[in-house]
Simulated scan of single mutants.
Amino acid sequence: MIHKLADVQSLNIGKGTNVWQFCIVLPNALIGDNCNICSHCLIENDVAVGNNVTVKSGVQLWDGIKLENDVFIGPNVTFTNDKTPRSKQYPNEFLKTLVKQGASIGANATILPGITIGEFAMIGAGAVVTKDVKAHSLVVGNPAKEVIK
């Protein structure tokens, strides 16, 4: 189901996926089956979203972001793809961010570019993730630090 108030330019949307109102999905984005893309989201071209992924409201998935299967992205999570952003100055290639299978990112967390979040990791709400996160770990705070292995 693609809401009539969404601007979905991609033909690569899996079956059973819902894209809600006021979303923009650019032409080369890949979105798997049974996903839920909530309202007010932006998904750029060089983005891959696996199956059974939830992206809550207010999230932007910039070029270079990959979400594997069964990932949860909480409301207003902020991804970045450029470590040294400047107006009208773009890198030759954006850094790649990978969120591995089953990982969950809490509301309002910030994910710096070039990070890998391991399988089934949990990122606490409001955390600022500045480095890779190990599989099955819980990180919280600013900067995010592991609290459970």
Rank of each mutant, 00 (worst) to 15 (best):
K131Q: 14
F120S: 12
K149Q: 07
F72D: 09
W20G: 09
E146N: 05
L95C: 00
G118S: 07
I105K: 09
F120T: 04
H40F: 13
T84I: 02
T54W: 13
I65K: 02
N76S: 09
V133G: 06
K145L: 03
Q21L: 10
G74V: 01
D132V: 10
G102T: 07
Y90W: 02
V99Q: 05
G32C: 12
Q60S: 14
N18V: 07
G141R: 03
K131Y: 14
Q9E: 06
D63H: 00
K96L: 11
V147H: 10
T78H: 03
D46M: 00
V47S: 01
H40N: 15
V71K: 01
I73A: 13
C23I: 04
I73M: 13
P113W: 01
K66G: 06
T78R: 01
V147A: 11
Y90E: 07
N81E: 05
G16I: 09
I24W: 12
V19P: 06
T110M: 13
A29P: 07
S39M: 08
T97M: 07
S39V: 08
N52D: 03
M1L: 15
V129A: 10
G102R: 02
I73R: 09
I24P: 10
A135P: 02
I31V: 10
P143H: 04
V147N: 05
D7Y: 15
I31M: 08
L112I: 12
F22V: 10
L30D: 05
W62M: 11
C35V: 09
L5N: 15
G58E: 09
